[in-house]
Design a protein around this nucleic acid. Structure first.
Length: 283
DNA sequence: AATCTTGGCAACCGCCTACTG
DNA sequence: ACAGTAGGCGGTTGCCAAGAT
């Protein structure tokens, strides 16, 4: 049983928006800005539900929307982020400037799912299809954690890369042999295999877990570097623009996963993670 | 040419969460 | 502490265009 409707349905239009309605909404938001969606329809002279206005604006009318097909890079980014975050479309959309959660969700359901299946990868678990079939009973959280394969194999020149874990192709499927279990303790020495130039793409591999460090030593160099690579790959432009050394230092100190994974926009830590001593903790 | 099927996408619905009084 | 509310999110639906028969 849900809440009562957010507006009086008897007096609201439904279905496709007309050009006139679009123009009214655009005009109103241009002069008054976003916010207070409940009162917006009345103020703007629209016979629409506030939610509907918000959706229309966010998904279709916003001026910063990127129209057109998704690029191959965007595809791979979505796949990687989905393997990390699951169906957190809004969070994923936050890492793709100009794309909306609805757009990404639709694109996932219509294109990427098929693409992954054709690669032999289960779109939900991001594992090879035959393997996924045996692990479908695992919880979503467990699956997500297990699928996170931190790849510390960084290039000397810090170029981000996606590393194929099966056949040296661009396939991004999960490989048990290169990831440890759901725990995040990185106890084994890090291997640095040779990679071909074709593999120099975006490194979105990330490990999530509690650090085993003290305040002053709470992030390993490997974690730091890998986190930096992830940041550089998926952070918004303003964050990516931070000089390499400065960014690495920031990552080494500010271990706010909300920020690094993308729960926060604008390259900021979430605030809740910061302790009285100025260091950050996982939250 | 007409009908059926399929794919893509915009929009809606219901639930959840954060905020406020 | 609690209830009410608005905003936000993910899942689902329904419409339409394009392709197949």
């Amino acid at each position: 049983m849900g809440r009562s409707p957010c507006c009086e349905k008897a007096h609201t239009n439904k279905g496709a928006w007309t050009k006139e309605e679009d123009q009214r909404l655009i005009n109103y938001i241009r002069s008054h800005g976003e916010g207070c969606w409940r009162s917006l329809p009345t103020a703007a002279g629209l016979q629409r539900c506030g939610k509907s206005c918000r959706l229309r604006w966010i998904n279709y009318l916003r001026p910063d929307l990127k129209r057109g097909n998704f690029t191959e890079e965007e595809d791979e980014l979505i796949i990687k982020l989905h393997s990390l975050l699951g169906n957190k479309w809004s969070v994923i959309a936050g890492r793709l400037p100009g794309r909306t959660d609805n757009e990404i969700k639709n694109y996932w359901n219509t294109h990427i799912k098929r693409k992954l299946i054709s690669r032999g990868i289960d779109p939900q678990s991001h594992r090879p299809l035959n393997a996924a079939a045996t692990t479908t009973t695992a919880s979503a959280a467990t699956t997500t954690t297990k699928n996170i394969c931190m790849d510390f194999k960084n290039n000397v020149d810090q170029k981000p890369n996606i590393i194929n874990q099966r056949n040296n192709t661009t396939d991004s499927s999960y490989d048990e042999t290169k990831c440890n279990s759901g725990t995040t303790e990185e106890t084994k020495p890090l291997e640095i295999p040779q990679k071909s130039s074709q593999q120099l793409m975006i490194n979105l591999e990330l490990s999530i877990g509690l650090p085993l460090h003290t305040k002053t030593d709470h992030i390993s160099s490997a974690e730091s570097t890998a986190s930096y690579n992830f940041l550089a790959a998926v952070a918004p432009p303003q964050t990516a623009a931070v000089p390499v050394t400065a960014a690495a230092e920031m990552v080494a100190k500010a271990v706010c996963l909300c920020w690094q994974i993308g729960f926060q926009g604008g390259g900021q830590s979430c605030g809740k993670c910061k302790t009285a001593t100025g260091f950050y903790r996982y939250c």
